[in-house]
Design a protein around this nucleic acid. Structure first.
Length: 434
DNA sequence: AGGAGCTACACGAG
DNA sequence: CTCGTGTAGCTCCT
């Protein structure tokens, strides 16, 4: 019996030992679990911290990009005076350009997207052309020849001999001369002793394939201002068929909004490249015009939410514009570092990327102000995608690739520079932070 | 043509 | 931080 008892005790003890062992192991496991959880939590915390840091960086960057009210007021006074002088001159002293009645402010300043300094202004001066014959020039649908039909029109003098085509180059040249005359006249005005020194205005040399007459305004104690005056044709008729399938804003802004945009006129700017060799249907390359929808871009930027109240006093604020501002800023900084290689990539590419992004992430909740960092990253990924594929469709003309003139090399190298910034938390913004 | 009233934004006060 | 105010630009109205 004793033996049996002893055996039992032994067994029991062994069992106890085993149990203890088990418990120990369980505890060990628990501890490990806890450890893992803890690690996960610290990772999460670190991530959150990183996110917060990044958010802060982006906000301070945006803050620094804000335009000062005083600068804006000073610049606007000068620019507006200059613009009304030019318009007056055109109305009173010219025959062919007297029909320019309104100014059409375009570009980032007038879209409230200008960053850092109010130093660049874009103004279009439209001339109505009625009953014009607009024919596409080459295949992508961005360039057109403009023919005038019979009837009186001060623009007739810009028609090519033996054809009805309006010569973009000649018209732009004459327009330049008129602007120059106006500037000269302004300079010759006698300066009264008690009047402020008038700003020094210079018409700068025409750049190749540039539709604008650029004026540089220098003033004491103020940044240099540049004013692009763009002569353009306003056509009040249905948009060219090449625009079909573009402006895909139905899901974002609604079908009605799209319809209303399509009721607006379209514009043609004298953007031609190359010399006067005959290229297509007897039309010379320097006589062609390029489509412009900057008035629609501006309207979209002003009314950019899927809800009407987006960014209004009562509604929720979104970060669409802020994301674009940041992208433009990043592009500027990268261009400054590496001037030559990214020369051909401009803020219009950034703007177009945002427009496309808004069409794929259509809800205002996709662009909540609180998600700035996340949204900005998304926009950058879009941009990198366009660059690596070397394909960025004109928002209004699906067959027109805005990157077709940019070299493969600069596309891929810019894409990797942007990716690098994104992955490293935008050190380029930190360097420029003060 | 000019001005009233609006929006979008900057900015300073509390 | 929120709020009111100022500024420029735009639309609509007379």
């Amino acid at each position: 019996m004793k033996k049996q008892d002893a055996q039992k005790k032994k067994d029991e003890e062994r069992m106890k030992k085993q149990d203890a062992q088990k418990k120990k192991e369980e505890e060990k496991m628990k501890k490990q679990d806890a450890q893992i959880k803890k690690e996960e939590e610290t990772m999460k915390k670190q991530d959150a911290k990183k996110k917060k840091e990044e958010e802060r960086l982006l906000r301070t960057t945006l803050n620094a990009l804000r335009i000062k009210m005083k600068d804006k007021a000073k610049a606007a006074a000068v620019i507006n005076d200059l613009i009304s002088d030019i318009m007056e001159h055109l109305k009173k002293n010219t025959v062919c350009f007297k029909d320019v009645q309104q100014k059409l402010g375009t570009g980032s300043y007038y879209e409230n997207l200008k960053i850092a300094d109010p130093d660049e202004f874009d103004v279009m001066m439209p001339m109505r052309v009625d009953r014009a014959e607009i024919k596409p020039f080459k295949e992508d649908g961005a360039f057109y020849s403009v023919g005038l039909k019979r009837g009186k029109n001060p623009l007739k003098r810009f028609q090519q001999e033996g054809s009805s085509h309006l010569s973009a180059s000649e018209m732009l040249q004459d327009f330049r001369e008129e602007v120059k005359k106006c500037v000269k006249k302004l300079k010759s005005v006698e300066v009264l002793p008690d009047v402020e020194v008038p700003p020094d205005v210079e018409v700068i040399r025409k750049k190749r394939a540039c539709p604008a007459v650029t004026l540089l305004i220098r003033q004491k104690e103020l940044v240099e201002l540049s004013l692009d005056v763009v002569l353009c044709l306003e056509v009040k008729s249905t948009w060219p068929s090449f625009t079909q399938g573009g402006l895909k804003v139905e899901r974002w802004l609604g079908g009605k909004a799209k319809q209303q945009f399509k009721y607006l006129p379209f514009y043609l700017v004298p953007k031609y490249k190359g010399c006067g060799t005959v290229v297509c249907d007897g039309v010379r390359a320097k006589d062609v015009w390029r489509l412009s929808f900057s008035h629609v871009e501006k309207a979209i930027m002003k009314n950019h939410g899927s809800k009407k109240t987006c960014c209004e006093a009562g509604g929720a604020k979104c970060c669409r514009k802020d994301c674009l501002k940041l992208l433009k800023h990043l592009l500027h900084l990268l261009k400054d570092q590496d001037q030559k290689s990214f020369e051909k990539i401009c803020s219009y590419h950034a703007k177009t990327t945002l427009l496309h992004a808004c069409c794929s992430r259509v809800d205002d909740s996709d662009w909540e102000d609180s998600r700035l960092a996340e949204c900005f990253r998304g926009l950058l990924e879009d941009f990198e995608g366009h660059l690596t594929e070397q394909k960025l469709t004109n928002f209004f003309i699906p067959a027109h690739n805005l990157l077709s003139d940019v070299s493969r090399k600069s596309c891929t190298s810019l894409a990797s520079r942007i990716r690098e910034q994104r992955e490293r938390g935008f050190p380029i913004f930190m360097e420029n932070e003060k």
